[in-house]
Design a binder for these strands. Structure first.
Lengths: 194, 194
DNA sequence: CTGTTACTATACTGATTGGTATGATATGCG
DNA sequence: CGCATATCATACCAATCAGTATAGTAACAG
């Protein structure tokens, strides 16, 4: 069966997540990762493939461990509550005191070299999934009479996602949790009254 | 007096702006720049200093040539109009068909390696200036009775800037001008009614 | 115990990074 | 013209990039 791995792969992945979240995909070197994880380069490549593979695995872990609130938020009884829970939950993730500020999905890559385009596109694709999930929830709400018929679910989803992305950049720039909740307050003021 | 420069420094700077705006600060290599500008490395360093200096000069050019609408927007007769002009003007810059989508100030750097931290901090500092300019305008509006006394100018400025940053990321991800104007529509719905 | 297997450690690869030394070339001044 | 000066082109620098070859080591199967 061979020699056993001397490090905890799951723990190492959590550390990689922290490094990528702070420095972005291109801003993180393999040496940054191995130093933080306390393992050697061959161990990293043996356990996680190449840099792209590792980043995608950290993305999966991030969604599973930090963005899991979104799934529950969408199940709130009303659309308004679902949107508000999404925004509030995201603010708390963006300003988690135990992690670098901001969002892995935004800090990871906004603009990058041609070599990293696949990662940038992966992040865009995942954001589209999230926006579509919200849009579907709002379409259901409109069918149920929970959202006025003249409100466009696609427009609403795009707006909420835009607010989220803006708060993510703001968080990465040093905005406090309290400040971002104030932004969420203002965002909710757009919600239709009665 | 010596040999004359064989290229137009201002034109070269415009090209550098396009490259940085598309690839970000870290995603752009000196070779990317010299290839696009059609000059050699020593010419670039002689004319613009080092990479950081060049990027700061492209930032100045960008603000002067693309963000100049903001100054005029703030002089609109009402605060509401000023905010709306800021958002509309920014959307048009973000989706300028002659430039890479998004904003140099956001695409430039959101998260980066330690080596590029000075650039990231410079971008944050410039965003703070913009937010403060808007806040000052809104404080004046409140003093004039143009903005209700219970509306906080700092909160409003933070919200508007967040919307802008979110639209910038959205634009860099491929959102259309029309889609972003719909986001601006929703943002303006938060404005207090009478 | 031996053999096989999978890990770790060291050292290395070629390519690319930002930045420069050097020598040729072109310009203006006297 | 001839000198001074500034730009140009080539070729280079050390450092770092992502990724790997090789050899040593630890664990299980038999």
């Amino acid at each position: 069966m061979g020699r056993h791995r001397e490090f905890d792969a799951d723990e190492a992945l959590h550390i990689a997540l922290q490094v990528f979240r702070r420095r972005g995909y291109e801003g993180t070197s393999i040496s940054d990762l191995t130093d933080a994880m306390g393992i050697t380069r061959p161990s990293l490549y043996a356990a996680f493939g190449n840099k792209e593979d590792l980043f995608r695995r950290t993305l999966d872990l991030y969604e599973r461990r930090h963005l899991c609130f979104a799934h529950e938020a969408l199940q709130a009884p009303t659309a308004r509550e679902a949107v508000e829970r999404l925004l509030r939950g995201y603010v708390d993730v963006l300003t988690d005191p135990l992690s670098p500020p901001g969002c892995l999905g935004v800090n990871g890559a906004v603009a990058c070299s041609e070599a990293s385009e696949p990662i940038r596109e992966e992040l865009i694709a995942r954001r589209i999934v999230n926006e579509n999930n919200l849009r579907n929830r709002l379409e259901k709400a409109r069918a149920d009479g929970d959202l006025p018929a003249n409100e466009d679910p696609a427009d609403w989803a795009r707006y909420v996602v835009s607010i989220g992305l803006g708060m993510a950049v703001k968080a990465a720039s040093g905005a406090s949790r309290q400040e971002l909740h104030r932004v969420a307050d203002f965002a909710m003021r757009s919600w239709p009254t009665a």
